[in-house]
């Protein structure tokens, strides 16, 4: 038995425009139609396409690429609502029922997306956080030679009260205080730098949002894990008129500088502007 894997819901288009584009596992793509809506589907075995296999990264990558290729292929020709990965029904009649049951909502979503594409903008700080100043912890600062030696007159009432001073201990205490003071200053500078970067990114977002029909904030990607240079401080998807892509991209890139790096991705089918999850609605009895 085969099941139907749905890539996207779209306005009708000529399937031959996809020029033989294949879906997951090389299966041919077909259209399931209801009124003036189509679902773009292909067959997958109803056994053997399961979550266990999708936990293997190469398999997931393969399916994700195939899914995305079909969505992008369709979006190049018609208004497209991309579905989430692995949307699977028992057959085409079940897919048609989805189109029928959700018709008003799908139509409204497509109307809103007509003539628009999604662009991703990722903003990074130019480099990692400022390096910690050259000196190490107090133990590495020879007593009396550190910068605190010049400030010998400062009261040393923090660590030295309890015990009689031994040779070198006031200096060590001063080095310690100085170290902590320096660390605090560095931390403050780092936070101020980060705050300024975030403020600049917010301004950037406001400026770009003004050029877009809609925008969605996404979670920044983890720097340690993405391997990207700098801290990822802003990750936004913008819904932009298709004929404004060039202008929008140029504007986004022009906003780089001042320690911020800008990366523009897309155009994407409007993945980030799909209607809200059905999970929020009362469950339907589909059986």
């Amino acid at each position: 038995m085969n099941a139907s894997y749905t890539y996207a819901v779209a306005r009708p288009f000529r399937l031959d425009l996809l020029a033989g584009l294949r879906g997951v596992d090389g299966a041919p793509v077909r259209l399931v139609r209801h009124d003036d809506l189509v679902a773009v589907v292909s067959s997958v075995p109803d056994t053997g396409f399961d979550e266990r296999s999708l936990e293997a990264l190469p398999r997931l990558a393969e399916v994700a690429r195939a899914h995305h290729a079909v969505v992008a292929g369709v979006a190049a020709h018609t208004v497209t609502l991309p579905c989430r990965l692995a949307t699977i029904h028992r057959g085409d009649d079940r897919v048609a029922a989805v189109l029928r049951d959700r018709y008003p909502r799908l139509r409204a979503a497509l109307d809103r997306l007509a003539g628009r594409v999604e662009l991703g903008v990722k903003v990074y700080t130019e480099a990692g956080p400022p390096a910690v100043a050259a000196s190490g912890p107090p133990a590495e600062v020879p007593a009396g030679t550190g910068p605190t030696a010049a400030l010998g007159g400062l009261p040393s009432n923090i660590h030295t009260d309890a015990e009689p001073p031994t040779a070198g201990s006031p200096e060590a205490a001063r080095s310690g205080r100085d170290y902590l003071r320096r660390r605090r200053a560095e931390q403050r500078a780092r936070e101020e730098g980060r705050g300024a970067a975030h403020q600049a990114a917010e301004r950037m977002d406001a400026e770009l949002a003004a050029l877009a029909a809609d925008h969605r904030r996404h979670r920044p990607q983890d720097r340690r894990l993405s391997g990207a240079e700098g801290e990822h401080i802003l990750n936004v998807a913008y819904l932009v008129a298709a004929d404004q892509v060039g202008a929008f991209t140029a504007q986004a890139r022009a906003l780089a500088g001042g320690g911020l790096r800008v990366e523009v991705t897309g155009p994407w089918a409007p993945y980030s502007f799909a209607p809200p999850d059905e999970a929020d609605e009362p469950a339907e009895d589909l059986t």
Binding site: E51, C83, R84, L85, R90, L286
Partner: peptide, 17 residues
């Protein structure tokens, strides 16, 4: 995008990623 975004339609065959 394909895992976190995109339209969610409850399918007949649930794939819990």
């Amino acid at each position: 995008r394909v895992l976190d975004k995109g339209m969610v339609i409850a399918g007949d065959i649930r794939i819990n990623l």
